[in-house]
């Protein structure tokens, strides 16, 4: 039972707020000696496992850290290429941490504007006028709940499929947005929200919703 993340999209389709609440991404760290049994390749500026599943490391997992130091895309923090680094024997033995990478800010912005268009398409497909657009999008691992206000702002909550009472949370998030973003005189409309008060109130709203969801299931 969990709420994974929250997105707020302005009426033009721009992402103005994003918050990852619960990240239960499996990460595997393992010590390797030369030569590496896994086949790695560079994909989308990241080093991913191309072949050879073992010990919970799966094809598609990305190299997150080497010897406890986080990597930056396909390079180590000191700028060396990971593939080259792993090809030379003197660097071994070493620990590599694999896992599913977090979305980068750019990817989030892109996905948000894509959802905005998808939402518009969704409401155009409706046989009747005034369709609400996409309200729920369900997959086997998560459920996306969307609420569009009359002014065109979209609140999106991504949660566990079994999490209940998301509609209450969406309404609460709208109130938090009006109270701590809009009523802050220094917040400019339709711009990314960077307010500590907003952050903390949003978090407590989410925690409350999680408790509520559990007690009612």
């Amino acid at each position: 039972m969990a709420i994974y993340s929250v997105y707020i999209i302005n009426k033009a389709g721009g992402l103005i707020y994003q918050y990852d609440h619960f990240t239960n991404r499996p990460e595997v760290e393992k010590t390797f000696s030369f030569p590496l049994e896994l086949v790695l390749k560079v994909f989308d500026e990241k080093v991913v496992v191309a072949f050879g599943e073992r010990d919970g490391i799966k094809v598609g997992h990305t190299v997150l850290a080497i010897n406890g130091k986080l990597v930056e895309g396909r390079y180590l923090q000191d700028g060396r290429d990971i593939i080259e680094f792993l090809a030379s024997q003197e660097n071994f033995p070493l620990d590599i941490k694999f896992g599913r990478p977090k979305l980068t800010t750019n990817e989030k912005i892109m996905l948000a504007s894509m959802f905005h268009s998808l939402f518009a398409i969704g409401s155009q497909l409706s046989p009747d006028l005034r369709s609400s657009g996409i309200e729920v999008l369900e997959t086997d691992t998560f459920k996306l709940h969307c609420h569009q206000t009359m002014t065109g702002v979209k609140f999106i909550v991504i949660a566990d499929p079994k999490q209940a009472h998301i509609d209450v949370l969406l309404k609460k998030l709208y109130e938090v947005y009006t109270d701590f973003a809009l009523k802050n005189p220094f917040y400019s409309l339709d711009m990314p929200i960077r307010c500590d008060l907003f952050d903390s109130n949003l978090q407590s709203a989410i925690e409350q919703a999680e408790k509520l969801g559990i007690s009612n299931v």
């Binding site: 206000t149 009359m150 002014t151 309404k171 109130e175 947005y177 009006t178 809009l182 009523k183």
Partner: peptide
Amino acid sequence: RLIEDFLA
């Protein structure tokens, strides 16, 4: 700004 508060 107030309209959002009102609607919420």
